[in-house]
Design a binder for these strands. Structure first.
Length: 204
DNA sequence: ATGAGGATCCTCT
DNA sequence: GAGGATCCTCATA
């Protein structure tokens, strides 16, 4: 298997998101085929962590493409992104779900509550749990052959199998279809709208 | 120094 | 479908 190059991961997050479907993320003996991702783009996307400028947490998003951006949410979960824009413009793709294609025993051991193998990496925090990704992995260069985590080329997903829709769990910019998934995969997570900031119009 | 609010998951009903 | 777990991050003061 071949690692993706920085050139392949650099560009508009919408394009990179599509291209990431079908690729394989490996950490140690566990590998996951990505089937669901979301694009977050820099300064003009109110749902992106980078929207309000550079902070210690989102610093990796402002660096070069091909790096892993890991953040902590809800007091107990980690989510992983691939940085995809070049210096100065912060954009990233959230890795939302995948199918475990290697290291199934380790994956099951890390997700004891999973009722089926389809659920092992069905959701962004489940995906990081299966791969053993946490805060310590923030800022890893996925394109470095020596890096402990890598992103590898897989069988390309045909366009007609790619579906799009609004992003999960965000309460702003709900009109843009920046979530991409592989139609028919049982590892794709369900849609859920964001919980806060509901306007009076949206409630009725 | 403080407080509000999460790019979620799990366990009920 | 609702609620709790749990603590970091950032904005305000």
């Amino acid at each position: 298997m071949r690692r993706l190059t920085r050139d392949e991961l650099a560009g508009d997050s919408l394009d990179v998101a599509r291209q990431l479907l079908g690729t394989v993320l490996r950490a140690g003996d566990v590998a996951v085929r990505l089937v669901e991702v979301e694009a977050y783009r820099g300064f003009d996307d109110p749902a992106a962590h980078s929207y309000r400028g550079r902070t210690p947490r989102n610093e990796v998003m402002f660096g070069p493409a091909g790096f892993l951006y890991v953040y902590f949410v809800y007091g107990m979960h980690f989510c992983a992104n691939v940085v995809c824009a070049t210096d100065g413009v912060a954009s990233a793709v959230l890795l939302r779900a995948g199918e475990v294609v290697d290291g199934i025993d380790t994956a099951r051991a890390r997700r004891p509550h999973s009722r089926s193998d389809n659920e092992l990496a069905k959701g962004p925090a489940r995906l990081t749990a299966v791969l053993g990704i946490d805060r310590a992995d923030n800022g890893i260069d996925l394109t470095d052959p020596a890096a402990p985590i890598g992103l590898f080329a897989g069988d390309p997903v045909p366009d007609e199998q790619i579906r799009t829709g609004p992003r999960v769990g965000v309460a702003v910019a709900m009109d843009v279809p920046w979530r991409f998934w592989v139609d028919g995969s049982k590892a794709v997570s369900g849609y859920r709208r964001g919980g806060k900031r509901r306007t009076a119009a949206a409630q009725r």
